[in-house]
Amino acid sequence: MSLIAEFPPNFVHADRIDDHDPPPAWLVALVKRARGLLLPVLLAGLWHWASTIDASTAYAFVPLDQIGDRLLLLLSSGELAVNAGSSLGRALTGLALGGLSGIVLGSLMAGFPMVERLFGPLLQAFRQVPLLGWLPLVGLWLGSGEGAKQLLVAVAAFHPLLLNSYEGFAQAEKKHLEVGRVLMLSRWRTFRFILLPTALPSILTGIGQALAFAWISTIGVELLFGTGAGLGSLMHTAQMAGDMGVVVLCVVAIGLMGYGLNLILSLVRARLLRWRVTG
């Protein structure tokens, strides 16, 4: 620094030894990022190559341009939007119904040991059955319509929130509750300013898990029932018709939407938990 300052700027410039500048930082970053694209591009290439071998492989590995055509078709007909919207609505409704009941029951269980003893062991037992294991039974009872699907998605969202809100409310610290007593806080304020904030991180974790479970089971029930609208049903129909292009597009859409939901939630979470020590 000090050395350069002693020379006039133009002199410093003329004195520079190597002519080619190092590549700018953004280019380095771009190239570094692009390395991650190599593998998917390579796989796509292999896929495309497999589609050209003969007719039997072309059935499974549809040519990439055909997938592109399908995408345009699904987009222009609005089919993708309708089915994606239907799945999203189902997942969010399930999250709201199942999640809210989970939070209510979880906080009741944390607050009243009696409720915990009445329902705890039974719910624990029910939780052991993989969600889609209920599907045949629910199918027998409720058919394969909207009610059955919504019930299963709600149950998927119910358990994580039950567990996490129970744990969250149960961990309220005695020392914080004591401050509440000294300040003569009302029951409502104790809940609002001590119990709820204590439980909030757990509840948000629970919402994250519940959202993931709701999304997975939405796709699962649509796929297995194969009725009505939804990305899972669309995929089911495409599989029956041997239309790999649509199946691939559905997989990508499901992944992207799951990722997007997760992203939105983590933003909300960061906003609500600003008070926590970070990094």
């Binding site: 997975i216 796709i219 796929l223 995929m235 559905c250």
Partner: peptide, 11 residues
Amino acid sequence: RQVPSIAFLPM
């Protein structure tokens, strides 16, 4: 990893 396993079944 973002894609649930179940979604890969038809594929």
